[in-house]
Structures are given as structure tokens and as C-alpha cells.
Design a protein around this nucleic acid. Structure first.
Length: 256
DNA sequence: ATGGTAGAAACTCTA
């Protein structure tokens, strides 16, 4: 029995709902973490998602941010945000599904290195690392999945020289992400051989997708016990090729 | 390759 866990920054659930429903129907993932839903809870398209065979928990706001978890089985123990980190933007929701603690994450973008938003991004990551340490105490089956807004290594960047020191790639951001992983998580994608130039996000501008000017910033991070069960992790570029796509592609990890 | 596009909302911000 396999369990397929996906993450997808949909950049407006309202606009992307047809793509999402088609993709759920085609891929039938067991659980999906969504980011940038940009929809208040009262407007969440729960009926359409239920009709597709999924339950949902969500935490959204108008215009910006917003996260959700969809699942084909029950979602229990739902929590919002990072404990002890006061934060207005809706970036974090967690639930237990299929015996796995699943966290849907939308990390701060950071805007520019050295900006106030960059400092906030680093603080957010520090809080995430502390929380992850707590969650991993004992034999935790924990999966953090989402738009981490950091490309972990140069091979996750289409042009590392051009991006050197820039937002998503700077050393402090990479260290901040590493601190989360050092709590005891592994990048599911790198458990397996992967094609060169594997990316999950391409800017809408400058025909970046056509030119494959991308970054891999959407990650599934697994605790050791889950990593041992992981049999594959792939990026599905198909939805990025559609008309009016999200700027992100979904990532799917398959657990045995 | 130093601009540009997309989304939401509202005459601009965020990514």
C-alpha cells in the first residue's frame, strides 16, 4: 500500500481550481499540500474538492498567502501556524493523515537580501527549525511539504552564477533551511537520481518557463522513518505547460 | 537578461 504525498503552490486556488481538479483526477494523490490559495476560509471551494473525493483543511486570507491540506482519508489534529511564533500571514497548517504528521508550508519570499522581509524570512525559518526539533522528538513520522522559497543547492538553480547571493539562494537562507533539515529531515527529491536542471518554479516574466530559467524551491522534507519508506519523488511539469498556469509545478513523493 | 507577467484588489502590492 503506497501513500503519495504532493505539494503544489497553486497561486490562487480560485483561478487554478480547474487545473487542480484535473490533476487530482489524473494523479490521485493521497494527500496534497497547497500554498498561496489566496482565499478566505468562507470562500474555500470545499464542495468541488469534496466532489473530487478529497477532504480538506485550510487556513487562508484575502489576496495573499493561504495554505491547505487535501486528503482522501481523514485529516485529524489540525493546527495553524508555528507554535510560539506570532505571525499574521497564513503560511502553516498541519494535520495527521494516514499516520503521518503532514505540514503544508508557505515560507516567506524575502523579497530582497537585507530587506525587512528578508529578516522576517530568517526569523520564520528559525522558528520553524525549533518547532521541527520538538515535533521530531521520539519516533515521529513527519513530512514538511511546501514552497520553501529557498533553492537548497546550486544544482537547484538554472544559472547559479547569475543567482549567487540573491534572494532564494543566499547563504543565510540556505543555512536557515539546513537548520530545519538538521533537526532530522531529508529532501525526498535527493533520495533518488534526478535529471539535471530539475526545477519547480519558473518566473512568469521573461518567458522563463520556455527558457527553463527555474529554481527548485518546492520541497518534500521527510523524517528518517518516512525517508526509509520513500520510493520516488518527482516534479510534474505538465500543469506548468497548461494555459494560465501556476508559476509552480507540483512535487509528488511516493511512500511505501 | 536589469525587464518583464500574473493575481488580487483597487488606483498598488506581492511574488
Amino acid at each position: 500500500m503506497t501513500f503519495r504525498l504532493a505539494t503544489w503552490n497553486v497561486n490562487s486556488l480560485k483561478v487554478r481550481l480547474p487545473h487542480l481538479l484535473d490533476w487530482l483526477g489524473a494523479e490521485r494523490p493521497d494527500a496534497v499540500c497547497l500554498q498561496e490559495t489566496k482565499v478566505e476560509d468562507a470562500s474555500f471551494p470545499l464542495d468541488a474538492i469534496r466532489a473530487a473525493g478529497y477532504q480538506a483543511v485550510f487556513c487562508g486570507q484575502k489576496a495573499y498567502n493561504g495554505v491547505a491540506i487535501l486528503a482522501r482519508s481523514a485529516l485529524t489534529g489540525v493546527t495553524h501556524g508555528i507554535p510560539g511564533f506570532a505571525d499574521d500571514p497564513k503560511r502553516v497548517i498541519a494535520a495527521t493523515v494516514g499516520g503521518i504528521r503532514v505540514v503544508s508550508l508557505y515560507a516567506p519570499n524575502g523579497q530582497a537580501v537585507g530587506s525587512d522581509k528578508y529578516a522576517y524570512k530568517l526569523r520564520w525559518y528559525e522558528a520553524l527549525a525549533a518547532w521541527t526539533k520538538d515535533e521530531l522528538a521520539g519516533d515521529a513520522r513527519l513530512a514538511l511539504a511546501g514552497d520553501m522559497n529557498v533553492a537548497p543547492e546550486d544544482r537547484d538553480v538554472h544559472d547559479p552564477k547569475r543567482w549567487e547571493g540573491q534572494i532564494h539562494v543566499s547563504e543565510l537562507e540556505r543555512t536557515a533551511l539546513r537548520r530545519v533539515m538538521e533537526a532530522g529531515l531529508v529532501d525526498a527529491f535527493r533520495l533518488f537520481p534526478q535529471p539535471d536542471r530539475s526545477f519547480s518554479w519558473w518566473d512568469y516574466r521573461l518567458a522563463a518557463f520556455r527558457r527553463d530559467w527555474g529554481l527548485r524551491i518546492d520541497l518534500v522534507l521527510l523524517s528518517r522513518s518516512l525517508a526509509a519508506r520513500c520510493r520516488a519523488c518527482t516534479i510534474d511539469k505538465a500543469p506548468r505547460r497548461l494555459e494560465r498556469p501556476s508559476d509552480h509545478a507540483p512535487v509528488i513523493a511516493e511512500l511505501q
